[in-house]
Design a protein around this nucleic acid. Structure first.
Lengths: 239, 239
DNA sequence: AAGTGGTCTAGACCACCGA
DNA sequence: CGGTGGTCTAGACCACTTC
């Protein structure tokens, strides 16, 4: 239950590609060979390969085989659900988090609209800035529904909020909808970020849901424009 | 061959959701019921459901069923491969395309690096602006490898380049890697776009590949910052 | 013609949910 | 407990590439 067979096969092939045991441009073993190697049925192998394909590791070509792609360089887990991790997790720079505010609030009308709340219910408001090399370049404003996250501390917010949610509270994150726009910096941005003569902020707004399809968190992640970068791998679904 | 069974089922369910024959928040029929309805095996039904899930239409919950999600409002085909379509295709505004340049060039070193070209080979360079309500807000610079796209005309570029590539040349687009950043507007931006006192440009750089894994196009899509919006649906892959 | 991936099937067992 | 989705299997046939 910890892992299904096809995920284990996916993970194994993933590592082999990352460690260049299989070089970019090469063909993967055929599906039948992989059936042998992993003692699995073909459909199970194919699930693992489909996952590799979705995540940009391989390209399957009918009649030929599965080519290993060369996108690994900057291909950190695309469309992960937290923008901070996306940026920080895979870089070598030193990131630091500062908690500016942690309060339990009753949402006002504007927030209720943003969060699509029907009734008024208490919400954790967390404001944090993220610094790299001592320069605050990201301002994260999180709003979490208290009936799902009963307690929060500054300590949790300063370290990894998501670790806490997933590993301590055992919450299962399901999906999120994100929206990226560019806006003018406001007073709060100027106060809490090192604005560096820059007037623009990239705003990533996310609605995050649990696996139960229950809404759970709204996040506004405000990035200094010159420090922002979003990478995406998109596959064409021929229908 | 035109369509596989599971794609047909996916498409049918898609339409039913769009037309609200199945309401958001409701459960889809169970997998076994769908087997009956579509006269298909369960794995085939599950392929269709997996596709719906990937594209944000449903959330599957073990032991319960598949809930129809309510993301339809602004959920245009996320992570399509062409940023112009993403913006224009599903809006009600009137868009117009102006072709500024269409030439066959030998790429210089900078372009060769961007396009990851080993040898020097002729490349189509297409510069177009996109206007909405008479205001030019997007500048698209496309570079297409001529050995794959032998001929281009201004007429094709003014209408739909991608229609031509897919339907006339029968090219099969496979996947793309995109990168979104924010940069200062340059002279060309100011000349060809209605810059509106704005100094920033959202730059979407894409490397596009065919299904054969062959590289084929580099695109730089430069959006006036205040007109830019990117929407993404991301699913957590629990492993 | 042989080998590859693409699709579909029927059946089995498990993990989870709700009454 | 019964019904749901999650996983895995073995086998079949098709479409495509390559020789």
């Amino acid at each position: 239950m910890g892992k299904s067979k096809f995920v284990a096969i996916y993970t194994d092939l993933c590592e082999k590609i990352h460690n260049q045991l299989i070089a970019a441009g090469d063909l993967l073993p055929t599906e039948n060979e992989l059936c042998e190697q992993y003692q699995a049925s073909r459909e199970t192998i194919r699930k693992a390969l489909a996952m590799l394909s979705r995540n940009g590791y391989i390209q399957k070509i009918q009649g030929k085989g599965s080519i290993v792609l060369d996108l690994s360089r900057q291909n950190f887990p695309v469309s992960g659900l937290t923008s901070f991790r996306e940026l920080a997790g895979h870089s070598k720079d030193k990131w630091q988090t500062t908690v500016h505010q942690l309060v339990l609030i009753k949402p006002d009308d504007h927030l209720k609209m943003l969060m699509n709340l029907q009734k008024s219910q208490p919400v954790w408001k967390v404001i944090r800035s993220r610094s790299v090399n001592g320069e605050a370049v990201i301002l994260d404003k999180d709003y979490l529904i208290q009936s799902i996250v009963p307690m929060l501390t500054a300590d949790i917010c300063e370290h990894s909020l998501y670790d806490y949610l997933e590993n301590e509270l055992k919450l299962k994150i399901g999906f999120a909808k994100k929206e990226i726009t560019v806006e003018h910096a406001n007073e709060e941005d100027k106060r809490l970020l090192a604005m560096n003569h820059d007037t623009h902020i990239v705003v990533v707004r996310s609605l995050v849901y649990l696996e139960s399809a229950e809404f759970f968190q709204y996040t506004e992640s405000r990035h200094r424009a010159d420090k922002f970068k979003f990478v995406d791998f998109a596959r064409r679904e021929h229908q």
